[in-house]
Design a protein around this nucleic acid. Sequence first.
DNA 1: GTGTGACTAATAGTCCGTC
DNA 2: AGACGGACTATTAGTCACA
Lengths: 76, 76
Amino acid sequence: MARKPKETPLVEVFAQNVRRLRMERGLSQEALAELAGVHRTYIGMLERCEKNVTIYNIERLAAALGVAPPVLLTSR
Amino acid sequence: MARKPKETPLVEVFAQNVRRLRMERGLSQEALAELAGVHRTYIGMLERCEKNVTIYNIERLAAALGVAPPVLLTSR
DNA sequence: GTGTGACTAATAGTCCGTC
DNA sequence: AGACGGACTATTAGTCACA
């Protein structure tokens, strides 16, 4: 049968995707921050779900990670 | 050949999707606002790209419209 | 290289209206 | 039904020093 939806909050899905994609590319939080044009500690805050990121920063992070924005909101 | 990327800003893609999906469902801005638990005037602001929506509200809007969140960030 | 608390500036989001 | 404005509060954006 179909599997249980599981319902992870979207901020967590986002956080996990950012961390996973960053790791896959061998980037540090600092390196990604520079690519995305945001501050070093801000990446960490997002990965820990401490900020409720806006669509504008979702777009910038997606570009820095080289993926389409919807990818960051997609559970895997 | 592959088509031109076109690069519509993500906030505009989001705005267009919200408006289109809302219309398809025959909902007024007020009705959608109530379903999503946000304020009446806020839906209008989003559709006019006047606000930089947060991921939390993307999630709520997606739920209210009955679509997966990534759908709202996808160009069509 | 990352987590965390503290902090200011900016803006997300609400609520009251009018057109 | 929806655009738009002003005033307001809550929260995010973004930075820093330090663990």
